[in-house]
């Protein structure tokens, strides 16, 4: 099964687990399995328009926006990483009002 990496800010919804295996052949299917098992994750990953804007999802290091979005295929052993959007390294701002 694919493995999902959970960022530290979301681990309170996974009982502290950093890596979770979940079934599916696409990112969408895997996330469905994941949010069924850990319902607290759903609101943190999705809003009414789909995946929340400040979350980046990578399959084997590739941003899924540039593959096939939530339909990006995954295989047994694929790593799906969920990461908060960060710019500019440790010296970057989170949010900038402008």
């Amino acid at each position: 099964m694919p493995v999902v990496r959970i960022p530290s800010v979301l681990r309170k919804h996974t009982g502290g687990e950093a890596k979770i295996t979940a079934d599916g052949t696409s990112v969408r299917e895997v996330f469905d399995s994941l949010t069924t098992a850990h319902p607290g994750l759903a609101d943190n990953l999705f809003d009414d328009d789909g995946l929340r804007g400040f979350i980046n999802v990578y399959v084997d290091d590739e941003d899924i926006r540039y593959v096939s979005g939530l339909d990006t295929p995954v295989e047994d052993g694929s790593e799906i990483a969920i990461m908060p959007a960060v710019a500019g390294g440790a010296s970057s701002p989170q949010r900038v009002g402008r």
Binding site: R52, F54, I55, P84, V96
Partner: peptide, 24 residues
């Protein structure tokens, strides 16, 4: 670094044009 980030306060710099990228 990620531990300090709150997902509600994510940040995408205004300067970045995501459409110019072919892959990230």
């Amino acid at each position: 670094v990620y531990g300090l980030r709150n997902l509600d306060e994510g940040y995408v710099p205004e300067v970045l044009d995501q459409d110019v990228l072919d892959s990230r």
